[in-house]
Simulated assay, not measured.
Amino acid sequence: MKHIDFLFNKIIRFIEIFLVSIFGLLVLDVLWQVFSRYILKTSFSWTEELARFSLIWLSILGAAYLNAKREHLSMDFVYQKLSIKKQKKVSLIIEVLIFLFAAIVMVVGGFNLVYITLKLNQLSGTLQIPLGYIYAIMPFSGLLIMCFSVYHMSKIYTNKLVD
C-alpha cells in the first residue's frame, strides 16, 4: 500500500505543478491582453481564446485535484452527526457515486465529445487548435477522479482515511 500512496502523492504533486503553470499562463495572457488593449491600443484576438481554454483546463483539472485532496465542496452537517460506522458507509456511497459520475459523464461523454470534434475536424476560431485537444481534459480528469475514488474507497474500507 505504501507504493500506491507514493504514486498517489507524486500524481497529486504533478497536478499541482501543472495547475500552477496553467494559472500562470492565464495570468500572463490576461495581463498581455490588458496591456495591448490599453497601452498599445491594439487587441490580439488569440489572447481571449487562450484565456478561455486555460480556464477550461484549470477548472476541470482543478476539480480532479480537489477530489484527490477530498476538498471538494460539501455540506457535512448531517454527516458529522452520524456514528463513525454510518459515516464510513456514507463515505463509501459518496465515493461510488463520484466514481459513477466520472465514468459516465466525464469519461464516456468526454471521449465521445473528443472523438466527434476530432472526426469533424473542428478547429478553434483564432488559434486553429483542434477542439478535441481542448476537450481531452474532460475524459483525462474523469479517469483521474475514478482512480482517486478507488484510492479513497480503499482507504475508507481499511479505516485509514481521515476526513
Results as ranks from 00 to 15, higher is better:
residue 147 C to M: 05
residue 63 A to G: 15
residue 130 P to I: 12
residue 44 F to I: 07
residue 140 F to I: 01
residue 1 M to I: 07
residue 89 K to S: 09
residue 159 N to G: 08
residue 26 L to G: 00
residue 15 I to K: 00
residue 161 L to A: 11
residue 163 D to K: 10
residue 137 I to Y: 01
residue 99 F to A: 03
residue 159 N to E: 11
residue 41 K to W: 07
residue 111 F to A: 03
residue 111 F to I: 05
residue 136 A to R: 03
residue 4 I to R: 10
residue 7 L to T: 02
residue 8 F to N: 06
residue 48 E to P: 04
residue 32 W to V: 02
residue 113 L to Y: 02
residue 8 F to G: 03
residue 49 E to F: 02
residue 111 F to R: 03
residue 89 K to T: 08
residue 130 P to H: 05
residue 26 L to W: 01
residue 6 F to L: 14
residue 116 I to M: 12
residue 26 L to P: 00
residue 52 R to E: 09
residue 33 Q to T: 01
residue 66 L to M: 12
residue 7 L to N: 02
residue 39 I to A: 13
residue 84 I to Q: 11
residue 108 V to L: 10
residue 145 I to Q: 00
residue 43 S to G: 08
residue 75 M to V: 13
residue 63 A to F: 10
residue 158 T to K: 14
residue 92 L to N: 03
residue 61 L to H: 12
residue 40 L to M: 14
residue 146 M to R: 01
residue 152 H to Q: 11
residue 81 K to R: 12
residue 104 I to Y: 07
residue 85 K to D: 11
residue 118 L to E: 04
residue 91 S to P: 09
residue 1 M to T: 11
residue 49 E to S: 09
residue 156 I to P: 02
residue 149 S to M: 02
residue 106 M to Q: 04
residue 42 T to I: 14
residue 58 L to K: 07
residue 84 I to G: 05
residue 49 E to Y: 08
residue 18 F to W: 04
residue 117 T to M: 00
residue 112 N to F: 15
residue 151 Y to C: 05
residue 21 S to C: 08
residue 156 I to G: 04
residue 79 Y to H: 02
residue 53 F to G: 04
residue 117 T to F: 00
residue 91 S to R: 05
residue 116 I to T: 13
residue 114 V to I: 02
